[in-house]
């Protein structure tokens, strides 16, 4: 079991490293925002990809595009699958463009109410 875990970890690390090398395809952020709502992505990840704790992790900034695509098509854990007939690759690219366009979080120290 432990060997399997180590092997899986290594494969994941390799695939993540490979994924970093792919440039994300061109997408339409505006359409991506609409798709993010339409398909209910916002319900677990928040409308701004901010995450909702246990329901869905933060997607701002998003992981590498192949990781996002792979997670959509063959999800790990309990995320439901989104097959290509539902969201084509271009739709995923649009969503990815939307997530990439989100503003970075301000420094929490700059927000009075968070002190």
């Amino acid at each position: 079991m432990r060997k399997f875990t180590i092997l899986a970890g290594l494969l994941l690390a390799v695939s993540l490293a490979q994924a970093q090398e792919y440039a994300p395809p061109k997408g339409d952020a505006h359409n991506g925002a609409a798709l993010f709502q339409k398909f209910g992505c916002y319900s677990c990840h928040g409308s701004w990809g901010q995450g909702t704790g246990r329901d869905g992790p933060r997607l701002n900034p998003p992981p590498a595009f192949p990781v996002v695509l792979q997670q959509l098509r063959t999800p790990r854990r309990e995320m439901p699958p989104y097959v290509a007939s539902i969201i084509p690759d271009q739709g995923v690219a649009d969503i990815y463009a939307y997530l990439s366009s989100l503003p970075k979080a301000p420094d929490p120290k700059s927000i009075k109410e968070l002190q």
Binding site: G46, S47, W48, Q50, G51, R58, N60, P103, A105, P106, D107, P108, I111, L114
Partner: peptide, 19 residues
């Protein structure tokens, strides 16, 4: 600090974020 960072990501969001 980690929680403050999490909520900072949604500070300006609309609809108004729960954080």
């Amino acid at each position: 600090d980690a929680a403050r960072q999490d909520v900072a990501y949604q500070w300006e969001a609309r609809p108004i974020s729960t954080g």
